[in-house]
Simulated scan of single mutants.
Amino acid sequence: MSLLTIRNCLDPVLRKKCAPIENINDDLVTLSNDMIETMYDSIGVGLAANQVGIPQRLIVVDFGFDAGKKEDHDPIIILNPVITAAEEEQDGQEGCLSIPDIVADVPRFKRIEVKGIDLDGNDVRYEVEDYLARAFQHELDHLEGKLFWDMLGRTRRDMLKRKFKKLLKEQEG
């Protein structure tokens, strides 16, 4: 396994709608495992394939992550995920590996059902709530070319973008 480079929010690949996965092959298995390793190395809870430059409908999420504290790692891989049911909205703080050091309160559904396919080609279904529901919705937004700050009002979003660009310049210089 190897670490992948996480693209930042200025990379155009994060604004593209990802293509469905048609075939499961060894390259996809390797990509999935590399994404898991990259997610953990970056201290993340989830990662979408386009965040590492691959515009395909693939996400990894750590099922062992609960309410802000790490328990046992339990990574899951979902190909072509879709939300099939959702209920009760709530606000909660979010960050993103593609927008380091920036957080904001974002509205998300409290409970969702997600369906997709695993690496063996089997249909999978997950019912999740609270923090994991937020993580799934965040990663699925990436597959649609959306970032968490797109769900905010224009003024707040523009403030966060300016803050991110300032942080980026400070890191470069």
Rank of each mutant, 00 (worst) to 15 (best):
V61M: 04
F65Q: 02
F109D: 15
A133F: 07
Q93R: 12
D72M: 06
N80W: 01
D123Y: 13
H73D: 11
V82G: 04
L132M: 13
I99L: 09
L58K: 10
I112L: 03
R134V: 08
L132W: 07
Y131R: 06
I117H: 09
D123F: 15
I102R: 04
G121F: 10
I78R: 07
Q90V: 11
A85R: 06
I59Y: 02
C96V: 12
G64T: 01
A133N: 05
K115T: 08
L132Q: 14
R134P: 03
A67L: 08
A85H: 12
Q93D: 09
E113Y: 05
A85V: 00
V106P: 00
L97C: 11
E127G: 12
E94P: 06
V114S: 07
P100K: 10
D66C: 09
K115C: 05
Q137R: 04
E113N: 08
K110L: 08
D123Q: 13
V82R: 04
K110I: 08
R111L: 08
G68D: 12
I83V: 11
R134H: 10
I102M: 08
E89I: 14
G68Y: 00
G116P: 11
V103M: 06
V114T: 06
E71A: 12
Y131M: 12
L79C: 12
D66R: 02
D91V: 13
A85L: 02
V82K: 14
E113I: 02
Y131S: 15
D120L: 14
V60C: 11
V124T: 10
Y131L: 13
A86W: 05
L58D: 08
K110T: 09
D72T: 11
D105N: 15
D101F: 05
Q93A: 09
I102Q: 09
K69T: 06
G68F: 00
C96D: 15
K70C: 04
D123I: 13
